[in-house]
Simulated assay, not measured.
Amino acid sequence: MTEEAILQGCLKNNAAAQKALYEKFSAKMLVVCYRYAHNREDAEDMLQEGMIKVFSQIHTFESRGALEGWIRRIIVHTCINTLKKNKRFNDSVDLIHASSLQVREESIPSIIQAKEVVECIRMLPIGYRTVLNLYAIEGFSHKEISGMLDIEESTSRSQYTRAKAMLEDVLIRKNILYKPKEEPLIAATAR
């Protein structure tokens, strides 16, 4: 069944088309949910809730962009709303730990395996993880994120910066990212 046939069938509430749409996109969308969820069960719940919204709002899809992108946006918003509803986002940032982070300017090499990075991202506090996912992976601006999460734009920026630093520390500790040892200050100034 083509994507257009699936879409037309879903608009007519055809069960076979709805099943085809679910089968075509559910695995990809579960990965999206997993990045925001506390565990696999929560991710599966987010996916189910998001797909229900997809089916109930399919008539609003205007075919200007990709169907997958439209579905992804609904799934992301469902994940965010679930986090907000459960108050997991607002209670998740450990300010004592956050203030001790040292921000580094180096970027994470692109050669790192995506699965390992996703697992390391999941180790971050949920607030950091959420902002990192929304900004770096989903491509939302800090202004959009602040509106979605009901936080200040500056909070989004600082959580993103702290998330990057914490992620780098996790990657280094797990020996996924190599960080050369810094030269002692005396040796560097003696040259």
Rank of each mutant, 00 (worst) to 15 (best):
S110I: 08
A98I: 05
T78Q: 07
G69T: 14
E68V: 11
T78M: 00
L83D: 05
K115P: 04
S100T: 14
A98W: 11
N86Q: 13
R73D: 15
E68R: 07
E106P: 00
D91Y: 11
W70N: 07
I96H: 07
P109Q: 01
H97F: 04
I75E: 08
T78S: 03
L101S: 06
K85G: 10
L101K: 07
L95T: 13
S100A: 14
S99F: 02
I111G: 13
S110D: 14
R88K: 10
I80G: 00
L83A: 01
R88N: 08
K85L: 06
A98E: 14
I108V: 12
I96E: 15
F89G: 01
K115R: 13
D91A: 14
D91E: 14
N81D: 11
A114T: 13
Q113V: 11
Q102D: 09
I112L: 15
I112D: 08
A114Y: 10
L83S: 01
K85S: 12
R72L: 02
E68Q: 09
N86E: 15
K84L: 15
I111V: 14
T78N: 00
H77F: 10
D91W: 08
P109I: 04
W70F: 04
E68A: 15
I111W: 12
R72C: 10
E106G: 04
E106C: 04
S99Q: 13
P109W: 06
I111M: 07
K84I: 10
S107T: 11
E105N: 07
I71N: 03
E68Y: 14
V93G: 00
L83K: 02
R88P: 03
F89P: 05
I71C: 04
I111Q: 07
D91R: 13
K87I: 03
S110M: 02
I75T: 12
G69S: 15
Q113S: 12
R72K: 06
E106F: 03
E68K: 10
H97W: 07
R73G: 09
W70R: 00
I108P: 05
L95S: 11
R72F: 08
K85C: 01
W70P: 01
H77I: 07
E68P: 00
S110G: 08
L95N: 12
L95K: 10
I111Y: 13
I74K: 05
L95V: 11
K87Y: 11
H97L: 07
I75Q: 06
R88F: 06
S107P: 00
Q113I: 10
I80N: 00
I74V: 12
G69V: 02
T78I: 00
I111L: 04
I111A: 10
Q102T: 14
P109R: 04
S107H: 06
N90E: 14
I108A: 01
L101M: 12
Q102G: 08
H97C: 06
H77Q: 09
K87R: 12
I108E: 02
R104E: 15
H77K: 06
G69K: 03
Q102Y: 08
R104H: 10
A114Q: 15
T82P: 00
S100L: 08
H77E: 09
L83Q: 09
R72H: 10
S99W: 01
L101Q: 09
I108W: 02
S100D: 12
V103D: 11
R73Y: 07
Q102S: 12
C79D: 01
R72S: 13
S99I: 07
